[in-house]
Every structure is written in structure tokens, then in C-alpha cells.
């Protein structure tokens, strides 16, 4: 795959993208918080050096918090169904960190497991992912544990990095990405040689929380469905669900019919396994009736069940759940309770 130099500055490159009539989504401060939002002009763009990561992930652009899946009307005893249109405008999601870009290969697996979710995949196909290597980290980041690094391009179509002369360049990761760059010849120029690595990325990798051995973690989980640790690890949880709502890989949803007198809509709404209603049956029975059982589900799903099924971890180490938890339940510390660190040279 090819590499391209950004000729002028980063803002000009974004200007080029906007002129191609893409809907550009990138980190932007709105009402005091940094989140992925629509960019109206290039002046609003933050360069990859200006932020660590956003409060919420990009999943809402592929799997929205609420999404109509079908509409219906009644006439007498007859029901008429109407399909829902999915936005057709091509999008570019720009400036995702490796921990967010990597979430797509994880979500793609589940959204086509047994059934292909056309809502998710229509958006995926219409969207080009431009990742950006991390130029800083904070105490919550632990991507190396999940096999990533500050400069992992996994999941991206294009990836922005700095070479050792502090100049930004684009790495084409997929053909889809390469085709986009070809439309931006005024802004980019193909590089003939592989750019020299900027030492910054290695430095950041070393600052990140030390790598935990997730193979050992899984072995422990395989044998400890019943363990008093679950109670101990979750007793202070307030079941607020912030962890799941901010997680780039949590994907559980609830299906609800919202019905008026003669019409209605069936919606997919985000849901979270830490809520007691999540598994409550209409009979009143709740198979996960304690916080210990619900927290066990969260950890098992991330580090065991998903690994059993897809050979992947349902976590990218973005640290959002750690930053947001009001009582400081820290999933990295939790996993470290039952798995060793990886020896590093």
C-alpha cells in the first residue's frame, strides 16, 4: 500500500475532503466536551496533536443510540409495514485513535454473526475511516494490553502519522482509503520511500499502562464463572451504565415498539448489561439478579465469550470506562487481579 505526504497543512487537507462533498465527522468541542461531531469548515478541525481522545466513541455513527428499524400503520386489523431509509451520504470519520479504529473489525464480526445487520453495514460501507496515531496518552489508556499501539492502523482505511521530521503523512491501509486519496491530488503527494518512524510513538507506548497477559486472563475466566471475587469487584458499582455507553465495542441493544393510535415505529435503542432491567424476564425472574452476576457478564463477554467465538477481545483499551466510572471501577485493575503482566524487554 502507498504512503502520501500532506502537502500543505492538515486544515487544507480537511478542506479538500469537505470539497469532495463528504460528510466529515471529527473530534470537536461542543458544549464543553470533546466528541465526534460534524465538521462544517476546516477551521474547526483539531490536529492529531491537540487531543488525547473524545469522551464518547464513534460507534454512534454506525450503531446510533436510537434507530428506527421499521415503521408501521394499522387500518382495522391490517398492519402495513414501511421500510426505513438509511442515510446515503458518504461520510469520512477522521482522527480516530487506534483504539477506536480497531473497534470496527470487532463490531463487524458481531453485526454479521448469524444475521447481517444491514443498518450497520450500509453505514460502514458508506464511511471511510481515517485514523490518527496518538501523540499523547493519559493514565487510563491501556491499548497495548489488547494488542494495539499508539501507531496501530488496524481498522482504518487511511492512517495519519508523523514521520521523523514531524511532518504528517497518510498511510493507505485499504483500497477504499487509497481511492479516496487519489481524489485529493491537490492536497497530497505520493511518497516513494517508506517514511522514517517518529520516535514519539515508541515513547508513548512505554508510558501506557503495562501490558497484561490476556491469554492468562482468559484461562482464569474459563475456570472461574463461580468465584467470590465477582462480588468483591463489583459491590460498589452503581449500575449507571456509563462504561457500556461510552465503550467503542459494547453493542447491546433493546428492541422497542413505540406505538400511537394508528401507527408506530420499531426501534433499536442502546442497552447495557449493568442495568438490572437488561435481563429481567416478564415473569419477574431475573437470571442476572445481582451486581456480581452482571459485572461478571461484562468481564466475561469482553475477555472470554468474545474470544471463544471470534478469537478477539471485546475491548480496545481506550480507557473510556475507566475515566467515566463514578466509583473508580477500573477494568484494567480488575483483569490484573487474575492475570500477570507480560514480561517486557
Amino acid at each position: 500500500m502507498k504512503n502520501f505526504k500532506i502537502k500543505n497543512d492538515y486544515k487544507n487537507f480537511v478542506k479538500g475532503l469537505l470539497s469532495l462533498n463528504y460528510l466529515v465527522i471529527a473530534p470537536k468541542y461542543e458544549n464543553g466536551i470533546l466528541k465526534f461531531s460534524k465538521i462544517k469548515n476546516a477551521a474547526e478541525i483539531l490536529s492529531p496533536s491537540e487531543y488525547i481522545n473524545t469522551v464518547s466513541s464513534t460507534k454512534e455513527y454506525f450503531f446510533p443510540q436510537t434507530e428506527p428499524v421499521i415503521k408501521f400503520t394499522f387500518e382495522g386489523k391490517e398492519i402495513f409495514l414501511k421500510d426505513v431509509e438509511i442515510g446515503k451520504k458518504p461520510k469520512v470519520v477522521l482522527g480516530l485513535r487506534p483504539c477506536d479504529a480497531a473497534s470496527f473489525s470487532i463490531l463487524d464480526d458481531i453485526f454479521q454473526y448469524e444475521y447481517k445487520d444491514e443498518f450497520y453495514f450500509t453505514r460502514r460501507e458508506k464511511t471511510i475511516i481515517i485514523g490518527a496515531a496518538c501523540e499523547s496518552n493519559d493514565e487510563s489508556c491501556f491499548c497495548t494490553t489488547t494488542g494495539l499501539a499508539p501507531d496501530s492502523s488496524q481498522g482504518a482505511d487511511l492512517f495519519i502519522e508523523k514521520n521523523n521530521e514531524e511532518e504528517y503523512f497518510l498511510r493507505a491501509v485499504t483500497e477504499k482509503g487509497e481511492r479516496l486519496v487519489e481524489q485529493l491530488i491537490a492536497e497530497v503527494e505520493e511518497l516513494e520511500e517508506e517514511p522514517k518512524k517518529n520516535p514519539l510513538y515508541e515513547k508513548i507506548e512505554k508510558q501506557i499502562r503495562k501490558k497484561i497477559d490476556l491469554i492468562e486472563a482468559k484461562k482464569w475466566l474459563d475456570n472461574n464463572f463461580e468465584n467470590e471475587k465477582w462480588e468483591e469487584l463489583s459491590s460498589q458499582c452503581l449500575s449507571c451504565g456509563s462504561c457500556a455507553y461510552l465503550c467503542p465495542t459494547c453493542h447491546c441493544f433493546d428492541i422497542v415498539d413505540e406505538v400511537n393510535y394508528n401507527s408506530g415505529v420499531r426501534r433499536k435503542n442502546w442497552d447495557a448489561c449493568q442495568f438490572d432491567l437488561f435481563t429481567l424476564h416478564s415473569s419477574g425472574h431475573n437470571p442476572r439478579d445481582t451486581k456480581a452476576k452482571r459485572y461478571r457478564q461484562r468481564v466475561m463477554h469482553k475477555f472470554k465469550y468474545y474470544a471463544d467465538r471470534f478469537d478477539k477481545t471485546l475491548c480496545t483499551g481506550c480507557g473510556r470506562c475507566i475515566r467515566a466510572c463514578p466509583v473508580n471501577i477500573d477494568i484494567y485493575e480488575v483483569v490484573k487481579e487474575f492475570a500477570p503482566l507480560v514480561e517486557q524487554n
Binding site: 458544549n31 443510540q65 451504565g241 455507553y245
Partner: peptide, 16 residues
């Protein structure tokens, strides 16, 4: 309206 539009209905406000 601008502030409440951000709400994702996680109900963390209620839970805590």
C-alpha cells in the same frame, strides 16, 4: 434544548 439534546439516556444521573 441544546444541552438536553446531548443526553443518551443512560440514566447515570438517576443511578448515582
Amino acid at each position: 434544548m441544546n444541552e438536553l439534546e446531548k443526553c443518551v439516556k443512560c440514566y447515570a444521573c438517576r443511578q448515582v
